[in-house]
Simulated assay, not measured.
Amino acid sequence: MVLSNGLKPNVQLRFQRLEAVWNQARLGIRDSGASQREDDFEVVTEPSRPPRTPPTPEEVDAIRTAKASGESVRSIAERFNKHRSTVWRYTKDIR
């Protein structure tokens, strides 16, 4: 049991999740779920967000060309499936 005296609620929730995962690993629970307690958290097997991969040189050229043509950073990010800050980083010197 993790001592959580005086912690903020979101930090306490993180500790509870970590404790649940730790208990699952310690008991050797895999994907079966048969021996999980009802209040345990599920093990994440599929991440909810895509992996952070930098754009390829071809994508950088296309991103820079789109920005130079007047397209917005937001629409470029959506088209290339990149974060807006990634697109901005590669196009910040283009006006």
Score class of each variant (00 low, 15 high):
Met1Val: 11
Met1Glu: 11
Val2Asp: 12
Val2Ala: 11
Val2Phe: 08
Val2Trp: 08
Leu3Gly: 11
Ser4His: 07
Ser4Asn: 09
Asn5Asp: 10
Asn5Phe: 13
Asn5His: 13
Asn5Thr: 09
Gly6Ile: 04
Leu7Ala: 06
Lys8Asp: 13
Pro9Ile: 03
Asn10Pro: 02
Asn10Gln: 14
Asn10Thr: 15
Val11Pro: 01
Val11Asn: 08
Phe15Gln: 08
Gln16Ser: 12
Gln16Val: 05
Gln16Phe: 08
Arg17Pro: 02
Arg17Asn: 10
Leu18Ser: 06
Glu19Pro: 02
Glu19Cys: 08
Glu19Gln: 15
Trp22Cys: 08
Trp22Glu: 09
Trp22Tyr: 15
Asn23Ser: 10
Gln24Ser: 13
Ala25Trp: 09
Ala25Phe: 12
Ala25His: 12
Arg26Thr: 08
Leu27Trp: 14
Leu27Asn: 14
Gly28Asp: 04
Asp31Asn: 14
Asp31Cys: 09
Asp31Lys: 10
Ser32Trp: 05
Ser32Phe: 05
Ser32Asp: 15
Ser32Leu: 11
Gly33Lys: 06
Ala34Gln: 12
Ala34Thr: 12
Gln36Arg: 13
Gln36Ile: 01
Glu38Trp: 10
Asp39Cys: 05
Asp40Gly: 04
Glu42Phe: 02
Glu42Gly: 06
Val43Asp: 03
Val43Pro: 01
Val43Ser: 05
Thr45Val: 11
Glu46Ile: 13
Pro47Arg: 14
Pro47Gly: 04
Ser48Gly: 14
Arg49Ala: 12
Arg49His: 13
Arg49Trp: 13
Arg49Gln: 10
Pro50Asn: 09
Pro50His: 08
Pro51Ala: 12
Arg52Thr: 01
Pro54Phe: 07
Pro55Val: 01
Pro55His: 02
Pro57Tyr: 00
Glu58Gly: 08
Glu59Met: 05
Val60Lys: 04
Asp61Gln: 12
Ile63Gln: 00
Ile63Cys: 00
Arg64Phe: 03
Thr65Gly: 05
Thr65Pro: 00
Lys67His: 10
Ser69Trp: 00
Gly70Ser: 04
Gly70Glu: 04
Glu71Phe: 04
Glu71Trp: 05
Glu71Tyr: 07
Ser72Glu: 07
Ser72Phe: 04
Ser72Pro: 01
Val73Ala: 00
Arg74Thr: 09
Ile76Asp: 00
Ile76Leu: 02
Ala77Met: 04
Ala77Asn: 02
Glu78Ile: 07
Arg79Phe: 10
Arg79Met: 13
Arg79His: 10
Phe80Gln: 02
Phe80Ile: 01
Phe80Met: 01
Asn81Cys: 07
Asn81Gln: 14
Asn81Lys: 15
Lys82Ala: 02
His83Cys: 04
His83Trp: 00
Arg84Ala: 07
Arg84Gln: 15
Arg84Cys: 07
Arg84Leu: 10
Ser85Thr: 07
Thr86Gln: 04
Trp88Pro: 02
Trp88Lys: 11
Tyr90Thr: 04
Tyr90His: 15
Tyr90Gln: 03
Thr91Leu: 04
Lys92Asn: 12
Asp93Cys: 06
Ile94Lys: 05
Arg95Tyr: 08
